[in-house]
Nucleic acid binder design. Structure first.
Lengths: 144, 144
DNA sequence: GTAATCTTTAGAGTTAACTCTAAGTCAAGA
DNA sequence: TCTTGACTTAGAGTTAACTCTAAAGATTAC
């Protein structure tokens, strides 16, 4: 299938502006153009956009994503670099997920605390609750 | 315990510049000052910084974090707003974690693919591997 | 064929979150 | 006391990633 920039924008949730910006930054080197200059996206390009979303989602900068794309274009000589990059990103992602679990515990505690506080009309009083105090201990000291 | 800005910087990994910036933005309204103008951080302030880290980590802007801190300062009238905020952040965090799991599956596939590609010296050939093709199907179509 | 819509470019503008500078003040050790 | 290093402020500068504008050309629907 072929897609115009507007169709891709709809499909991906990005704006046409952003797609052009990505292309200018070298992130979409495979997008074709018609004789009159209109961009034509293929399913392969959509696939690249999904990969870009993934790499952005794990915290890579557009600059580093471009590096990966450049390596891809250089061919099999850069296979080790690309492998190493993905290994680093996995490690990074593992740390991120661990962090998010800690944040989740903290936020769950807050939800329990504030649910009780709303019920009692007082944060002070909710804080007296022994179960909440125990949860706070588990999650880690706070007051806020 | 009392801490200077430099000690807090060391403790938290933030720079003194960033701590002053946070204070200027209204995120640290409880930090004291000595007669001569030096900031004095307490353990409570460290606790706020940990909360700020958590909220930043789940994707909140400093502006929205400040809103929460302002609500806190307004007292028990704003308990419902704060509860709702934490509930929204939990929902957001759940989506985030789901996304990260998908990204992890994608990156794991890449690691398997590139490990094989490095072994064979060819991405093309690695792509022939039936097990990898099956994993790709599970994770979702790509080529990149 | 023509009006409405879409797309093009170059380049300017925006936003969030820092990050740094300069010029001066404060504190602790020899 | 002197020096060294940490701290102060106001304000300027930076960076990444968009986001928008203007003026023109291309495409689609009727």
């Amino acid at each position: 299938m072929r897609y115009s920039i507007g169709q891709v924008a709809k499909k991906t949730g990005l704006t046409a502006h952003t797609l052009r910006y990505y292309e200018k930054e070298g992130l979409l080197p495979f997008v074709q153009k018609t004789g009159s200059g209109l961009r034509v996206f293929s399913d392969t390009d959509i696939g690249w956009l999904e990969m870009i979303e993934c790499l952005k989602g794990v915290g890579m900068s557009l600059k580093d994503i471009k590096q990966y794309i450049d390596w891809f274009r250089e061919g099999d000589e850069t296979l080790p670099q690309r492998l190493e990059m993905f290994q680093q990103q996995r490690a990074h992602l593992e740390n991120q997920m661990e962090q998010l679990n800690k944040y989740m515990a903290k936020i769950n505690y807050k939800i329990h605390l504030y649910t009780e506080a709303v019920r009692l009309g007082s944060l002070e009083k909710a804080h007296q609750n022994k179960e909440l105090q125990a949860e706070q201990q588990r999650v880690y000291g706070d007051m806020f």
